[in-house]
């Protein structure tokens, strides 16, 4: 077993919205008691749809957002007890939109060397050399050192963002939808680059994506999120071969591969997408679930772990089903 590089222990994040002078605020939990771990060299895919809390979770892993409960450990040390600089050396993000992740007023060199400057690494000329070396690594010609983001294509911008994330040689990189804003032909180049860099620099990734084909291609383990909870986690191969949670099943069946003979899949999901601010009682997936049972709407399922897989669903919880069938003692 490799060393644990990133761990989240039972993290919860609540948000308060609608606060004003005359209105009481309402609170909702974007992430509810999520635990996950990442070992060196692993790629953890985090899959879920909009509003499931994956971006909130990512920001907590990066230390940009404090958990309301629970804690995040980077390299075994609580992120809340380490300084921003220490944290930044170990964990870095790559964002979805290469058009908004680069400051339009700064040159490529400024952008990529920012971490070096903040961390007081080297002299100006040493930094420039390091940046140039980094650009080589991400496959961007050195002649772009003095270019500005608006002069680059989407793929080139994403390479700059990757160079910025990697220049301090972090142990963990959180990739938040790194290719979903890019064209197919550019997407494949970025995915290839991420894979090459992983081997070269020995980094671990958390890959957040809604594109299961991408996740399957890169991730070694996959966690599926639904409304703030991780509802299933398995090694990639197993998850794709044998999904257990009905939501995972629906996600997998809705992957549209370019195979015309397969037609349009029927996910058997209801159309009622719940409001994340006001999740349904019991299992939050039950209104859309094709296998919902009576007690799904009242009883929150508990996480069931066996070996390296975890699922949170009443279908696999005999004890809870048993208890639900028996009349409650008065």
């Amino acid at each position: 077993m490799n060393e644990m590089v990133l761990e989240a222990r039972d993290v919860t994040r609540r948000f308060t919205i609608g606060a004003s002078l005359f209105k009481r605020a309402t609170t909702f939990s974007a992430v509810k008691g999520v635990s996950l771990s990442l070992r060196q060299g692993e790629v953890l895919g985090l899959v879920g749809e909009s509003g499931c809390g994956k971006s909130t979770l990512a920001n907590m892993l990066l230390g940009l957002l404090d958990p309301s409960e629970g804690e995040v450990l980077v390299g075994g040390k609580a992120i809340s007890r380490s300084s921003p600089l220490e944290r930044a050396r170990r964990i870095q993000p790559i964002f979805q939109n290469p058009y908004s992740s680069l400051n339009p007023r700064k040159s490529v060199e400024d952008i990529v060397s920012l971490p070096l400057r903040i961390h007081n690494v080297g002299s100006a000329s040493e930094r420039r050399a390091k940046v140039a070396e980094m650009l080589d690594m991400v496959g961007l010609s050195r002649r772009y050192l003095d270019s500005y983001p608006n002069q680059l294509s989407g793929g080139q911008r994403q390479r700059v963002a990757i160079a910025r994330a990697l220049i301090m040689r972090p142990e963990v990189v959180i990739c938040d939808e790194p290719t979903s804003a890019l064209d197919v032909s550019v997407q494949s180049q970025i995915l290839n680059l991420l894979l090459d860099i992983k081997d070269e620099l020995n980094v671990s990734y958390v890959l957040i994506s809604h594109n299961l084909a991408v996740v399957q291609h890169i991730a070694t383990r996959v966690a599926v999120m639904y409304l703030g909870r991780i509802v299933e986690e398995q090694p990639t191969e197993q998850l794709f071969a044998n999904p257990r949670h009905p939501y995972t099943e629906a996600l997998l069946s809705s992957v549209l591969t370019p195979e015309p003979e397969l037609g349009i899949p029927d996910t058997h999901l209801g159309a009622a997408f719940p409001n994340p601010m006001d999740p349904p009682p019991g299992c939050s997936f039950h209104p859309r679930c094709p296998h919902a049972m009576p007690h799904c709407s009242t009883l929150h399922p508990r996480p069931l772990s066996d070996g390296d897989r975890m699922v949170e669903c009443h279908l696999y919880d005999e004890a809870a089903a048993q208890a639900a069938r028996e009349p409650q003692p008065a």
Partner: peptide
């Protein structure tokens, strides 16, 4: 914008 988030992730101080 994500570049502000990226700057925070790099460890930049708020005044910076």
């Amino acid at each position: 914008q994500e570049y502000v988030l990226a700057a925070r992730a790099v460890g930049c101080s708020t005044p910076y």
